[in-house]
Amino acid sequence: MSALAARQTAFMESLLDDERALPDGWTQRHAAGLDIYRNNYRSALVEALRATFERTERLVGEDTFARAAAHHLIMHPPSSWTLDLAGAGFAETCQYLFPSDPEVAELAWLEWSMHLAFVACDARPLTSEGFLESAGDFDEEDWAELRLAFKPGLKLRDTAHDLKRLWSSLDIAGKLPEIVRLTEPSSNIVWREGERPVFITVSQAEGRALTAMMDGASYGEVCEALVAQQGAEGIALAGTMLRRWLCEGMVEAIA
């Protein structure tokens, strides 16, 4: 290792670890300078997490959030060139830190997914009309083989809490969070509508169907799975889901 590489490795380790002894030959003056770099490092990253997880901070409170953010940065020091990715894995950190309050991790996941959707690739949605134009002369086999490409940045996850109510209740600081456990677990889908990240809550069955299609399954395979779960109603259910995905602007193209 070159002298410069060794110096930078040691400096970075000192930056990340308050307890680390000063390198040989360093004085108290160096220690005072290093403290400023340490403080800059921490405050920039905690601020970045605050900006991304605004509602999660309101849910748990400022002090608790600051401790959670510090824990996350110690366990997962950033490696990407962009500060925008400092929050990667923060939902999992919340899951670990707040095991009795699963809504915290669910909300952190939602904020992180909205954050990513905000700067995802631009793509025009396939409209219902555009879809019907292409699918108007589909025969049974074409329908069975239908595969879809979804909008960049679209993400989904199963959740046990009503994230719509929780999200709205945390719109502004000082309001009491509405934490409501759903009677049935659901899926939340996040994507970008124009320039605005949005989300909806759907049934877990729909979440599974969407996940399957995002992973490359055909419409026919999704129909079969739904029929196996729901009986004959599965076909109609698949139609309802497909209509929703198109109407909401989640689909980019027929793949």
Partner: peptide, 16 residues
């Protein structure tokens, strides 16, 4: 410099 091969400080760090 802002990073090593392992970590990024997101700060403008001084060079020897």
């Amino acid at each position: 410099w802002t990073r090593t091969s392992a970590h990024n400080s997101h700060d403008l760090l001084p060079l020897p």
